[in-house]
Amino acid sequence: KELVLVLYDYQEKSPRELTVKKGDILTLLNSTNKDWWKIEVNGRQGFVPAAYLKKL
């Protein structure tokens, strides 16, 4: 499993997105899109802007 660090808080703006908090370490599911990465948070899957995340 690949992990990502959340660099900035992000509030979901659609049902396909997820809310994340700065400092969270989460599972990366897909990073093929350069702008939006798919991650998992508490069993939910969704997208967060790639600029808000850093691969560990």
Rank of each mutant, 00 (worst) to 15 (best):
K1M: 15
K1A: 11
K1L: 13
E2M: 11
E2Q: 11
E2W: 09
L3W: 13
L3S: 09
L3P: 04
L3G: 03
L3N: 09
V4H: 01
V4L: 04
V4C: 07
L5V: 12
L5S: 04
L5I: 12
V6Q: 01
V6F: 00
L7P: 00
L7C: 05
L7Y: 03
L7H: 02
L7G: 01
Y8H: 15
Y8P: 00
D9H: 05
D9K: 03
D9N: 10
D9L: 02
Y10H: 03
Y10I: 01
Q11L: 08
Q11V: 13
E12R: 15
E12M: 09
E12V: 13
E12S: 15
E12H: 11
E12A: 15
K13N: 10
K13T: 13
S14E: 10
S14M: 07
P15C: 06
P15F: 11
P15H: 13
P15V: 11
R16M: 14
R16D: 15
L18R: 04
L18W: 04
L18N: 03
L18Q: 06
L18E: 03
T19I: 04
T19D: 04
T19N: 07
T19V: 06
T19S: 15
V20S: 01
V20K: 00
V20Y: 04
K21E: 07
K22W: 03
K22T: 08
K22S: 13
G23Q: 02
G23P: 01
G23F: 04
G23I: 00
G23N: 07
G23M: 03
D24E: 15
D24P: 00
D24K: 04
I25G: 01
I25V: 14
I25H: 04
I25L: 10
I25N: 02
L26G: 14
L26D: 01
L26H: 15
L26R: 08
T27M: 11
T27E: 11
T27I: 13
L28Y: 02
L28V: 08
L29N: 04
L29C: 06
L29K: 05
L29A: 04
N30L: 09
N30E: 13
N30F: 07
S31G: 14
S31H: 14
S31C: 07
S31I: 07
T32W: 09
T32P: 03
T32R: 10
N33C: 07
N33E: 10
N33W: 09
N33R: 10
N33S: 13
N33V: 05
K34L: 11
K34D: 15
K34E: 13
D35N: 15
D35H: 13
D35I: 13
W36V: 04
W36Q: 04
W37T: 02
W37S: 02
K38I: 15
K38A: 10
K38C: 08
I39W: 00
I39G: 04
I39Q: 00
E40D: 08
E40F: 05
V41C: 07
V41G: 14
V41W: 13
V41Q: 15
N42A: 11
N42Q: 13
N42M: 10
N42P: 08
N42G: 12
G43S: 08
R44C: 06
R44G: 05
R44D: 06
Q45H: 15
Q45K: 10
G46I: 05
G46A: 06
F47L: 14
F47I: 11
F47V: 07
V48G: 01
V48A: 05
V48N: 00
V48E: 00
P49F: 02
P49K: 04
A50I: 04
A50F: 02
A51Y: 10
A51V: 11
Y52E: 01
Y52I: 12
Y52G: 08
Y52C: 06
L53S: 00
L53P: 00
K54Q: 10
K54E: 14
K54Y: 08
K54G: 06
K54D: 07
K55S: 07
K55H: 11
L56E: 03
L56Y: 09
L56D: 02
L56M: 10
L56I: 15
L56T: 06
